[in-house]
């Protein structure tokens, strides 16, 4: 299984690189035109040389791949630091939000899904379904923007800060205040992160449990005199978690990679915002680095999924 995914690695990067090669070629000229300042031809040449645009695409590409294996992603145009450092310094922030959202989603959705399955057709089931579908219909970033306007001191209430990861004076705060400040900055982004994922996971859990409850082995368990609780929470749930666990790694990969939109809305200086800024500022080495890392994360996520699959389902074994 893993082997099927792995060949994707180098190839897909190649595609991206070819793409990016084209992008780089056009890069500086469009910057100059968009900034509206005309740059003398000679200066232009110099800039090109500085950034390495004077060499043909394939040559740049080969150099770039060579450096990639040395974990050298080049230097950021904007930050004038190695790309690797620029990216890794943003990682903790994205991981922080990613992990919180991830845990929250799984901790809420799985019990909720199971309970909905058990109470299928009840008023609670119908109402909670409506609520999660309402959540599903609101794009997280849009809700985030709205929450900021409502509660972030925009037009109405000033309950939460207007984004950011921490307050500027965070380092001077006492440790209790630090925690408070952190939570203060966490609430709104996390709501935006989890809102649309709730529906998918809850309904997936519910359907999975319900499907398992009508399986033959459940009838066997009942025929043995096992209590309904144990049948549901032990027999059915263990089987129902297989498809859910399988999606876990993938989900994790996506969350850790940060969200473009939400980080942009809340001005959280993580991987997503970095990506956005780099594209806007045409900081191509960083963009390229992020693409590589995104792909790697996705790959790692898939591998984690496969491993979890093998753990939860005894029928799957690595050969």
């Amino acid at each position: 299984m893993i082997l099927q995914v792995v060949p994707g690695g180098p190839l897909e990067m190649e595609i991206m690189r070819i793409r990016m090669g084209g992008a780089m070629g056009e890069g500086p000229s469009s910057t100059s035109s968009s900034s509206g300042i005309s740059i003398p031809e000679s200066a232009m040449e110099e800039i090109k040389k500085f950034y390495g645009f004077d060499k043909p695409i394939y040559e740049r590409y080969i150099v770039w791949v060579g450096n990639l294996f040395k974990l050298n992603l080049g230097k950021s145009y904007v930050y004038a630091e190695p790309v690797w450092d620029v990216i890794t310094s943003r990682f903790p922030v994205s991981i922080y939000f990613g992990m919180i959202s991830f845990l929250l989603t799984y901790l809420v959705c799985i019990p909720l899904g199971v309970y909905k399955a058990v109470k299928n057709g009840s008023t609670f089931d119908i109402i909670s379904s409506a609520i999660v579908f309402i959540g599903y219909s609101i794009p997280g970033f849009a809700l985030g923007a709205f929450l900021l306007v409502m509660f972030g001191g925009g037009s109405f209430l000033d309950w939460f800060p207007l984004g950011g990861f921490r307050s500027n004076d965070y380092d001077t705060l006492s440790s209790v205040d630090k925690i408070k400040d952190q939570i203060h900055h966490t609430v709104l982004p996390v709501i935006s992160y989890v809102i649309s994922g709730f529906a998918t996971l809850t309904i997936l859990t519910k359907n999975s449990v319900i499907e398992n409850l009508s399986q033959d082995y459940i009838r066997t368990a009942f025929s043995k005199g096992i209590s309904e609780k144990r049948v549901i929470f032990y027999h059915a749930l263990r089987n129902s978690l297989i498809p859910i666990a399988t999606g876990l790694g993938h989900f994790l990969g996506i969350l850790v990679a940060g969200s473009f939109l939400i980080e942009t809305v809340f001005n959280i200086d993580g991987i997503g915002l970095l990506g956005y800024k780099s594209i806007v500022q045409r900081d191509y080495p960083v963009v390229m680095g992020l693409l590589v890392i995104n792909t790697l994360l996705l790959l790692v996520g898939n591998i984690i999924s496969d491993i979890i699959y093998a753990i939860v389902d005894p029928r799957i074994r690595f050969k």
């Binding site: 994707g8 190839l11 897909e12 595609i15 991206m16 793409r19 693409l291 996705l298 790959l299």
Partner: peptide
Amino acid sequence: EIWSTLPFLYV
């Protein structure tokens, strides 16, 4: 598979 690992929003 290769095609779908491209991060859509980025590209």
